[in-house]
Design a protein around this nucleic acid. Structure first.
Lengths: 223, 223
DNA sequence: TTATTTCTAACGGTTTTCAGTGATGTAATA
DNA sequence: TATTACATCACTGAAAACCGTTAGAAATAA
């Protein structure tokens, strides 16, 4: 019994013909991948891609006429079901985040090996995400930085060194939009006491007013 | 001229001797890696590792007596400069985040290939992070999920449907701890106007007071 | 034991917030 | 043209926040 394999149809958009030819050459050796079209500028991509039945779009982000980002946005505004792999000369973290937000499934640095394109196409076609190695590394680093920042902000010197448990309790309630009177009722203490704690918090945290307290609370995951 | 290569010294901690032997076997073929010791339980790791000069600790997270997490915490509390690669049977996202927070440099699923261990050791020794493939995938997914959530919060119905540009401007200033009078001076408008905008914001966003506004602003990345 | 911190509470006074209501000019839109 | 949305401004009064300072009781650390 022979398994009939459906070919993955690929459209390529890049302003450098030579690069397109290169990619086509690489993909031509792959039995389950077929290049069904290409565009040399952003303007062209949407029309082209909408009319053919490509499954995957390989999109260069730096293109004349219409920027790749704009193409991406248009693309997902029309909620096409196809997958997009973004191609870029630089592995700029901001850019990567941007395109991921918009909805790209993969991100390839141009310096990566040809085999990665094949891998990327297969991966996104199966519904997963693909990132070339250097980009993975970068993203992972910002990711773990995020984690450690969260952690370190919790271990914020001000937070653990001088804010008492009671103050934290009150800070939490302030950030829940309770005013002093309400907090005094919740904690069964005098309004004056709440106000004192509040004043101490403002002083200790070096903020100006309740707004500062609220923001501090949010940034330290107290809400 | 021959380059003299310093061997990377590795310590392994796992309660399964057979796994340790396996790793040692894999690493024995590597010229630049040397296994200098191993521990069969968590309790043992810290003493052992502190006294020898290993560069990299390969640490199983599921161990008897002292849990791997506890070992990790102790480890970084004593601020050892060495790198830690965490080994685990499951690629549980929560667990990964946990160990990354604490300070691990790498995470390997036990199902991964032997060569990955070599790659991991070299990578973390050079100061980078290493994650086995399945884990990368998982982390990337939660990462992009985060991004999309951030995005969706920006596209919060309330935010884009009813808040005007001027109101946003004022909201931003409120979140910067300016009071109405100060905002009126910054924007060269009457205090009454600022107050009106403020009231409208409170109404439109369904919050109780400035604190609610501030929190809304932070959560929508306006500060 | 002594010293310090923390929680509690209070007083007096000023400033700000907040709710409600109403009004005007302008610009876009139906 | 009429309507709507927006930004602007005003007045009132009650409530809340803010500022400075003081001070006792209890728990905790030196």
């Amino acid at each position: 019994m022979r398994k009939i394999m459906k070919k993955i149809k690929v459209h390529i958009a890049d302003d450098h013909q030579i690069l397109i030819d290169g990619i086509i050459a690489v993909l031509s050796t792959e039995k389950n991948i077929e290049v069904v079209g290409y565009s040399l500028n952003g303007e062209d991509v949407l029309n082209w891609f909408a009319s053919n039945e490509a499954d995957v779009l390989i999109l260069d982000i730096n293109m004349p006429k219409v920027d790749g980002i704009v193409v991406l946005q248009n693309f997902f505004e029309h909620s096409f079901q196809q997958k997009v792999i973004v191609l870029s000369s630089y592995d700029d973290t901001k850019l990567i985040k941007e395109v991921l937000k918009i909805g790209a499934s993969g991100f390839l640095a141009k310096k990566c090996a040809g085999e990665n394109i094949v891998e990327a196409i297969n991966t996104v076609y199966e519904g997963h995400q693909y990132f070339s190695k250097s980009i993975q590394q970068k993203l992972m680093e910002t990711f773990t930085k995020q984690l450690s920042q969260k952690e370190s902000s919790l271990h914020d010197s001000a937070f653990f060194s001088s804010i008492t448990a009671r103050e934290t309790e009150i800070l939490r309630l302030i950030a829940q939009q309770y005013n002093s009177k309400e907090i005094s009722e919740i904690l069964h203490i005098s309004v004056n006491t709440v106000e004192t704690h509040r004043k101490n918090l403002i002083r200790k945290l070096g903020v100006k007013n309740v707004v500062g307290l609220a923001i501090y609370a949010v940034k330290n995951n107290l809400v």
